[in-house]
Design a protein around this nucleic acid. Structure first.
Lengths: 212, 212
DNA sequence: TAGATTGTTAATCGATTAACAATC
DNA sequence: TAGATTGTTAATCGATTAACAATC
């Protein structure tokens, strides 16, 4: 359990998937080794930052002059993020956004597997959306427990988000990806990741406004 | 042009939409005044942080003991973010995610109006998706210029994102909301807001991993 | 007046960037 | 050896939190 892992800054963790995408692309091109300065140039980041980020998660380390072995670096990042063993997730709320997410190709590249969708809409229940079965809300607990699902994705209307959140927590979900525009109250040991689309819109809107 | 605006931290700007959602909710309940400590409690934020955030964008200011006039505070935030005059935007890539975004209710609450969608898919061109006309890629420039569109949303596959980005920039778009998992190269004066879904997945995945 | 709240100045914290010795 | 790159320690920067005087 306690592997005595160095504490990696949250900002670093958020950059790791970008490195991974970039490095996987390089691997496909047949590149064998890669250095921090090259990655920095490719992703428009500060060189020292990249060097520190990679040093934080690379177990093999890099060699002066040559850099990192690409294959090992990719494996180290995947291991650090836990992408090496795929985790099951459920999506609750199969509206436009929910069904778009169900079909999101990115999941499988990041160690996530959606096992089922849930909705209140009678017409959806029992059907498949992009290959995933849709169940009624009252089966969340049963299915989470039997599949040992630890990740829940909330794409229901804002006013139902807290209620769904509570059901998920009771069902044993440990981490929640919340697309609703509301603050969720959860026990201390549950992680909530808010996907704050309106924060992005705010930054865009303000950047335009300044140029009148 | 130069209104001599205080520089507001980026992190504050990102919190403003949350305040707005919260405050609009309170306004609907009929509340007339609101204080920073109340908002802080409601959104699980530090009290001083909220006070500073609100002070940064409120032109009227609050009164000791009573707090802010709710209506004025909402207007001040809306004005600061530029939500007071609605901006037109286009979406390029009307796949699952793109069409979900076209129907996203949140836009109108945050001063954005999607005027059109664009896609290469012949079957989509000429149709309406959630009430918005879909045009071919080669009409992006013409339509952006005639509607004076300054905001572009990219929901195309990763490998086409840069190409669409270039077209948008040439068409006069000033701010780009990028849902593709690639780094976009743009001139210095263009704002790119990356919606980094894989960063969120990374944080979730890692939080689960730690509990083995 | 007493007390809650504002707005601001100072202290702390975390992340980024710079500087540099160690290494192949 | 010379030079590029690593990994680490120190300096800077920005944001959060604490402390406090001013106000109604």
């Amino acid at each position: 359990m306690f592997e005595n892992e160095k504490t990696v800054p949250k900002q670093t963790v958020k950059r790791l998937p970008d490195y991974l995408t970039y490095l996987r692309g390089k691997a496909e091109e047949g590149v064998m080794t890669i250095s921090a300065p090259i990655v920095a140039k490719g992703l428009n980041l500060n060189e020292v930052q990249v060097r520190k980020d990679l040093a934080a998660v690379s177990e093999c380390g890099g060699k002066p002059r040559t850099g990192y072995l690409l294959r090992d670096l990719i494996l180290d990042i995947e291991k650090y993020l836990g992408y090496d063993n795929v985790k099951d997730a459920i999506i609750v709320g199969v509206g436009h956004l929910g069904s778009a997410l169900i079909s999101f190709e990115g999941f499988k590249n990041h160690g996530l597997n959606v096992v089922a969708g849930f909705d209140t809409n009678e017409k959806l229940i029992g059907t498949e959306v992009h290959g995933k079965r849709i169940f009624p809300i009252n089966r969340i607990s049963e299915i989470c427990k039997s599949f040992n699902v630890k990740i829940g994705i909330i794409t229901v209307p804002d006013k139902h988000a807290q209620e769904i959140c509570d059901i998920m927590v009771k069902a044993g979900v440990l981490a929640i990806w919340n697309f609703a525009q509301v603050h969720l109250n959860v026990p201390d040991d549950i992680i909530v990741q808010n996907e704050n689309l309106s924060a992005s819109i705010a930054l865009l809107s303000k950047s335009i406004k300044r140029r009148h």
